[in-house]
């Protein structure tokens, strides 16, 4: 099983902005409640697989979404 990463945001606005951008680029992702051990800036996070991580991050940077990543 490939490693899973969390993309963590500061606001719901950024979560949805990220979701829409990834959806448009057909990059698999899942919105989940932010795990307690990660931190709780925003209640929602994106779970993403390592194989598409770089591609996803590039899209988010391009879109100007504020985020940081954390390994599960």
């Amino acid at each position: 099983m490939s490693a899973e990463f969390f993309i963590i945001f500061q606001s719901t606005h950024d979560v949805i902005k990220a979701k829409k951008a990834l959806q448009k680029a057909y990059i698999a992702h899942e919105i989940i409640p932010t795990p307690k051990k990660v931190s709780a800036e925003c209640g929602m996070s994106l779970k993403i697989e390592k194989t598409v991580l770089d591609q996803a991050l590039e899209i988010l940077r391009l879109k100007g979404v504020l985020f940081r990543i954390d390994l599960l």
């Binding site: 606001s11 719901t12 606005h13 979560v15 949805i16 902005k17 979701k19 829409k20 919105i31 989940i32 409640p33 932010t34 925003c42 209640g43 929602m44 996070s45």
Partner: peptide, 21 residues
């Protein structure tokens, strides 16, 4: 409700607010 939870109904509400914005 928006942003308060991570379930599908909350996500859909958040998307609706995002779209209007």
């Amino acid at each position: 409700n928006t942003g308060r939870s991570g379930h599908k109904m909350a996500i859909e509400a958040s998307e609706l607010v995002f779209d209007t914005r």
